[in-house]
């Protein structure tokens, strides 16, 4: 419906099935949907991370796949994390070798959101030597129906199959599936993270505003001071996120690169997610703890999701390192900090 009316296509390039215009049109859309009390479809979350990557780094793939995604006919997954590479993404081991005019991909990816329903995945794989770190990685666009791909859902703590693991055994990926440069995958991943911490955070704050408004309504007649304090705390965290995120979204839309400061947004997002669902739980204990209806089940799943927000997309501990190293520029060990004659 959003597609046919044109809403979901605003702010995406015309040649890729969109209606053109600045990315801020998308920001406005998410805000308006939430304000009108309409759930923002979960597929938009994935779209906001992978959509900008395809448009920027693989325009041909964007032309082919964005229209079908916007029409709701495709779903994509993100293949970044591995069993042995989470926040330390550059240590990943899934590898792809060039063979004629295609790549041959082998390895394992994990925590792909809704991966079991995905038709395609953006997979970060090593194309350089094993010790090439972040310099030897490439981003590949993989058809999950190709021979050699196995996708298995993972039962999440919430009780729902939220994510999946993907196994690649000699999967052939055509050369046209390369997103960005060969061995240039790190830049693509970093670009994606900008959107994940920018537009995605904005989308989530819109959703969280709606949840907190519902919680305030639920608190009107039956909640005590503990719930009120939790709602107040959530409102402060959420307002902080929105105030910060709106400047980031504006900078992204103006073509600026927010740089390491965007780690602040990611931390504020985690805090807001958790504060809002703390308030939901404080206000609606009965519903969440002993309610089996569909609404209660959904809220429970969302509560668990809020706990994961400080883990996925680069754990909060890593974001703190980035803020300390690259925003505050605190002196590091070894720079001239250690054993320089004063110890």
């Amino acid at each position: 419906m959003l597609h046919d009316a044109g809403w979901s296509r605003a702010g995406w390039p015309e040649q890729a099935g969109g209606l053109g215009g600045s990315a801020t049109l998308r920001a406005v859309l998410y805000d308006e949907l939430a304000a009108a009390g309409i759930e923002v479809p979960e597929a938009f979350v994935i779209l906001e991370t992978l959509g900008p990557v395809l448009t920027a780094y693989a325009p041909d793939l964007a032309v082919r796949h964005l229209p079908t995604y916007l029409a709701g006919e495709e779903l994509w997954g993100q293949g970044f994390s591995e069993p042995e590479a989470g926040s330390d993404l550059a240590s990943l081991r899934t590898w792809a070798r060039v063979d004629g005019d295609s790549f041959v991909l082998s390895g394992q990816k994990v925590w792909t959101t809704l991966g079991q329903f995905a038709s395609h995945a953006a997979v970060l794989a090593r194309t350089g030597p094993p010790d090439s770190g972040h310099r030897g990685l490439s981003m590949l666009w993989v058809d999950l129906a190709a021979p050699g791909v196995t996708v298995a859902p993972i039962a999440a703590a919430s009780g729902r199959d939220e994510f999946a693991e993907m196994f690649f055994d000699g999967v052939r990926v055509p050369r046209s599936g390369l997103v960005g440069e060969l061995d240039g995958g790190w830049a693509v991943a970093m670009y994606l993270l900008q959107y994940e911490r920018g537009m995605y955070a904005w989308l989530r704050q819109a959703v969280l505003h709606r949840r907190l408004a519902e919680t305030a309504a639920a608190a009107a007649d039956r909640a005590g001071p503990v719930a009120h304090a939790a709602i107040g705390a959530a409102y402060l965290a959420l307002t902080s996120l929105r105030a910060r995120s709106r400047t980031t979204v504006a900078r992204l839309a103006a073509g600026e690169n927010p740089g390491p400061e965007i780690s602040v947004d990611k931390i504020l997002l985690s805090r807001a997610e958790q504060a809002v669902y703390d308030a939901v739980l404080a206000t609606r204990q009965e519903a969440l703890l002993v309610g089996d209806g569909p609404e209660e089940t959904a809220l429970r799943e969302e509560w668990f999701y809020s706990r994961a927000t400080s883990v996925f997309g680069g754990a909060v501990e890593v974001q703190r390192d980035i803020v300390a190293d690259r925003v505050l520029r605190l002196p590091r060990a070894g720079a001239n900090g250690e054993r320089d004659g004063r110890g």
Binding site: L212, A220, P225, A227, H228, I231, G232, A233, Y235
Partner: peptide, 11 residues
């Protein structure tokens, strides 16, 4: 703030 939001039943 929390009490006010609860009293208003919204944000």
């Amino acid at each position: 703030i929390g009490s006010l939001l609860a009293a208003q039943g919204g944000l």
